[in-house]
Design a protein around this nucleic acid. Structure first.
Lengths: 198, 198
DNA sequence: GTGTTTACCGAACATTCGGTCAGTTGACAA
DNA sequence: TTGTCAACTGACCGAATGTTCGGTAAACAC
């Protein structure tokens, strides 16, 4: 006889995954440095020491969260669809996919974009992020060289402004109430590629 | 004989203004919560306790810095040039002026845009910032109602994206190496109003 | 010279921080 | 019934936090 609850747990409680998810939410609400382990414990409904049963410590929580964001972004620039075809199309595709990652992994990317390099963990994340920016920057330069982008704005400036717009999504997007990732990307690409003015 | 230093002070040292300027730089480098009074003291070249001779405390430094940013932004939406004429022109003007404030008061605005509401000081700043956003949001809605903005993107979304782009400038702009405020505003308005695509 | 003010130091304060550890609980297998 | 073990508690640690306070050296006013 199979038990009535096939996936029944010995005890209901937390695991490293749920601790990470909740911790990242608190980090984003109060900032990483502004969050104490006591704050996390309160959000998890346990005592401080229980957290250390699931995860090694505060900085490891940050490291895991940042990796989750960066792995998503690198999957975009590592995709073959970012490697062949007209540069302007590849750029548009990269923007669209970046918006998707940003929405899918919103709390993790939000945390990443606020990192300032206060520890070796943060510095390593900044380094990976700079590498991602390098890919995008190269894509914009190619599109400019192919004559697909207006020549009266420097490619470096275009890169900053374009991905500044993308990244700013983390500042206000609410998955529950807002548009889908595709709707967001559509609106963003309309504004930045075709312009707001009628 | 006149002394070699005509404008000689009683003692050379810090004043509330110089303490604020340096403190805000450190805040932006390490984050407000990530900055200790010891960090500030090191940057000022004095001991921790000397700071309290010039300013009441850490949170007051934050409050003064945030006010400096917000006063600048409210001067934009309070100007008469934001009150009459075609809405699309007023919006363009407001964007241009906001970029100028952002560049002129870069460290203060940078700090403002990173505030999360951890204290009553931060919450008050967030409240004023929401008020500013309300002005801009209204401007965009007017421009849309006048038919000057493409109708296939919601005005609320336009507001977020447009000022997301403006605000993202604080993430990468370096006054020493970069373009002027006007150049920046030109490039930003070209992208968002007319589009990148040729 | 005398007194005052300015700008600071060094030591200490209470509190909070991230983290450790011995012990407890309760669901489960036998 | 007994034993196991995952999941947790509560007490605690040393270090760091923001802030206060008594003292002081140098520049000034008289």
């Amino acid at each position: 006889m199979a038990p009535p609850t096939p996936t029944r747990q010995r005890k209901r409680g937390h695991d490293p995954e749920s601790v990470l998810a909740i911790a990242v939410d608190v980090f984003n609400e109060r900032g990483y440095d502004g969050t104490s382990m006591e704050d996390l414990a309160r959000a998890l409904g346990v005592t401080k020491s229980a957290i250390y049963y699931h995860v090694p410590g505060k900085e490891q929580l940050l490291a895991r969260a940042l990796d989750r964001a960066l792995d998503g972004l690198f999957a975009v620039v590592g995709d073959e669809r970012a490697a062949s075809g007209p540069a302007i199309d590849r750029l548009e595709w990269a923007v669209r996919q970046s918006v998707r990652i940003l929405v899918d992994r919103l709390p993790y990317v939000t945390l990443l974009l606020r990192v300032r390099g206060n520890s070796s963990t943060e510095q390593a994340a900044l380094e990976r992020r700079r590498e991602f920016d390098g890919f995008i920057s190269h894509l914009v330069k190619e599109a400019a060289a192919e004559g697909s982008i207006r020549p009266d704005v420097e490619p470096a400036l275009v890169t900053r402004l374009l991905f500044g717009t993308v990244n700013s999504i983390t500042e206000w997007y609410q998955p529950a109430r807002g548009a889908s990732a595709d709707d967001l990307a559509d609106a963003l690409l309309k504004m930045t590629f075709s312009g707001l003015r009628v």
